[in-house]
Write a protein that binds this DNA or RNA. Structure first.
Lengths: 206, 206, 206, 206
DNA sequence: AATGAATGAGCGTTCATTCAT
DNA sequence: GATGAATGAACGCTCATTCAT
C-alpha cells in the first residue's frame, strides 16, 4: 500500500476510467473479497483492459487505498453535512446514525467492502483507516460536548469510549443487516438504536 | 471448508503436533491475515515440515475451521461459566463483558484473528461463525430477559437490537485496543462500557 | 479432461504459440510419457513461459485432448482419402495399412504418444479415443463388406473380430518398430502384413 | 527401475508379505493405473504398513518390474506347457491362443496392467519386456517352423512379422474385451481368431 | 521384522504486473 | 492513452521415501 497521489489529472476531466474502475473494483471486491478478486475481473467489470488499470492505480492494493480515501471519505463528508442540519446534540446524533445507515443501505457494495476490509488491513494503510475513524470520532466528540453543554448528555463520560460505544453499535447493526442479505429496512433501525445510545437499557428506578 | 472430525487421536498427547500447528497457524494468521499466510510460514512457525500439516488438517481452510471450532468455542464456554457466577442481570452483563475483554486481552492472536476473519468469511464456514455468534446472542438474550423480570432492565426493548448494540460496543472496544497495539489495559474498559450499556449517554433530567 | 473448444482464434497465425505448444507437448509426452512430463518441460521445449500454456490450454489434460482431437484426427482423415484412391477391397486395405505405417513413421512423436496413451486412458477422454478408433473400425468394416461383395473376401467372417485382427497386427508392427528405435523402414512391412491378413499363414493344401 | 534380485529369501518360506504386496499392487495398479496409484493404497490393500513395502521392494517402480518378472513370466511358462500338449502346429497355435485368452480372462487385474503398462515403459525395464516378448516369440517361431515342416504352414513367411501379426491380434482381442468391461466370454474368441491367423480373410478362389 | 509419522522435493496452476504494439 | 498476450514467482498440496521406535 502506498500513499495515494490523488485522482490522476486525466481523470478529473470526464467521469472517466478512473471512476469506472474504482466502482467496478468495489463491486467485485464486495462480491468476492479483496484477495479472491482478480485484476481481470475488475477490468472486465469496468470494461477496460487489464493493463489500463495500471495507468490509474499503482497496484491492486492501491485500489483499496483509493477506495478508503475517496469513496468513503465522501460519505463521511455527508455525515458532517447531515449533522449540521440539526440543532441540539440528540438530534445531531440521530441524524448522524440515520444518515450512516442510509448511505450504507444505498450502496451495498461499499457497505460490504467497508465492513469486511476495515478489520483486516492492519499495518498497511492503517493510517488511512485511522484518519477515517478520526473523522467519525471528531463528529461524535463535538456532538457529545455540545450535548453536555446543553444538559442533554451526561457529563461523566470518557468520550473516547463513547465513540467506540456508538460506532460499535452502528457497525454491528449494519453487519447483521448485510449478513441477512439486506432483506429489511436498515434505516428503520436508526431511531431505536439512538434511543438505546441515549437511554441505555437500564430501567429508570425512581 | 469442511466439517471437522475433532482432534485426531494422535493429538491427544501433550507435546503434540496438532496443537503446535494450530497455535502456530493462529499466530501467523493473526500477523498476516489468513490469505496472506502461507503453509510454509505456519510449518516453520510450528517447527514441522509443510507436509506434516496435512496429516492433521485437511487443507488450509480446515485450520481456520478448527480454530473457530475449538479455540474460540472454548472461550465462549468460559463466558457462560462467568455469567453463571452472577445473580442479577446487570452483574451478569458486567461479568460477561469483563470476561470477554479479559480473554481477548490474554490471547491477542486469537483476538486479532477472530476480529479480522469473523467479518470476512461469508459463504464458507459461515455456519460455524453464525453458530458461534448465536452462543453469544443467546447469552445476552437470557440476561436481558432476566433483567426485565427483575425490573433492572427496560421492558420496551427490541431484544434483537439490544444484542447488536452490546456486541457492537464490545467488539469496537476490542478493535480499537488491537489497533493501538494493545498498550493499555483492555479490561479496565469493561465497567465504564457496561455503565454505558445500562445508563446510556443521556442525562437524567427529572 | 474437457471438451476442446477448437483452436483459439489467436492461434490461427503461423508462428503461433498454440501449435508450438502442442508440438512441444507431443514431443515431451512421447519422450517421458504423459504423467512423467511436466508443464515446465513443455514450456521450455516450446520456448514460452509456464503460464503461457494456460492461455491456450485449460490444463495439462487438455493438451492431450487437443492432441487426440486434432493431430490424430487429421491423420485419420488422410487414411480415408487413401482408401478412396483404390478400387477393390484388397487394394484398399493395402493402401490403408501402407498409409498408416507411413504416417506413423513420418511423425514418430505422434506414433509413440498414440500407441502409449491409447491403451491407458480409460475413464477420461475415453470418448475421444473410442471415437477415433471408431473411425478406423468403420473404414475396415466398409472395406471388408465391399470385399465380400466382390468375392475377394470370405463371407463367413465375424466382422467385429476381423477389425481387431487387423488393427492388432498393424499396431503391433508399429510398436515393434518404435521399440527398435525405428532403425528400419516401417512402410516396407505393409505389403507382407497385408498378405498375411489376406492369406493367413496356413499352407494351401489342395 | 532396477534389475530385480529375485524373491527375497524371507518370502520363500510362507506365502507371505511379498506375494500379498505384489497381488495388492497389481490390483491397485489395474484399477487406477501405475502413476495414479499410491504406496499407501497398495499397503492398505495388502494389509501392511507403508514402510513394510520397502522391505520387499526397492521402490514403486520395482514393484512393476517384479510384476513383469514373476507374475507374467509364470503365465508364459503355462503357455509353453499348453503348447506342449498338442502335436501339430495348428493345434499348438490354437492351444496357445486359447490359453492366452484363458489366463487373461482369469486374472483381469493382470490383464489390465499388462496391456496398459506394456506399451508405456520404455527405456526403463525395457529389457524385461523384451525378454518377455522373446518368450512368446520363441514359442511362435517354434510353432511356425514345425508347421512348415509338417506342410501346414506356408514356407514363404518372415517369422518376425508373423509373430507381431499373431501377438497383435490376440492383444487387440483382449483389449477390446477389457474395454467392454469383460461382459462376454473371451475364450470363445480363440478359435475364430486362430482360424483367421491360419486362413486369412481372403476368399479361396479356385 | 514391522510400523506409520514425518519429511520435503516437486508438481500443476493462478494471477499481479509488464511492455511491445 | 490503451491494449492484452506474455511472464514467472509463488502458492497449496501430494506422495514416495526414510527412520526412530
Amino acid at each position: 500500500m502506498s500513499i495515494p497521489q490523488g485522482v490522476p489529472i486525466s481523470a478529473k476531466g470526464k467521469n472517466d476510467k478512473y471512476h469506472r474502475i474504482l466502482e467496478a473494483a468495489v463491486k467485485v471486491f464486495a462480491k468476492f473479497g479483496f484477495h479472491e478478486s482478480t485484476i481481470s475481473q475488475i477490468a472486465r467489470e469496468a470494461g477496460v483492459a487489464d493493463g489500463t488499470i495500471y495507468l490509474y492505480f499503482k497496484n491492486k492494493d492501491d485500489i483499496l487505498v483509493h477506495f478508503f480515501n475517496f469513496k468513503t471519505r465522501q460519505v463521511f463528508t455527508r455525515f458532517r453535512e447531515e449533522v449540521g442540519q440539526a440543532i441540539n446534540a440528540v438530534d445531531k446524533l440521530r441524524n448522524l446514525v440515520r444518515r450512516h445507515l442510509e448511505e450504507f443501505q444505498k450502496d451495498r457494495y461499499m457497505a460490504v467492502l467497508y465492513q469486511a476490509e476495515t478489520h483486516r488491513i492492519r499495518r498497511q494503510a492503517e493510517t488511512q483507516i485511522r484518519e477515517m475513524s478520526k473523522l467519525y470520532l471528531d463528529l461524535i466528540s463535538a456532538i457529545v460536548e455540545q450535548g453536555q453543554q446543553e444538559g442533554l448528555i451526561r457529563k461523566d463520560l470518557y468520550v473516547g469510549l463513547v465513540k467506540r460505544y456508538i460506532i460499535g453499535g452502528v457497525d454491528e447493526v449494519i453487519n447483521t443487516w448485510l449478513h441477512s442479505d439486506g432483506q429489511y429496512d436498515l434505516v428503520s433501525m436508526a431511531d431505536p438504536l439512538v434511543d438505546l445510545f441515549i437511554q441505555g437499557i437500564g430501567a429508570r428506578n425512581p
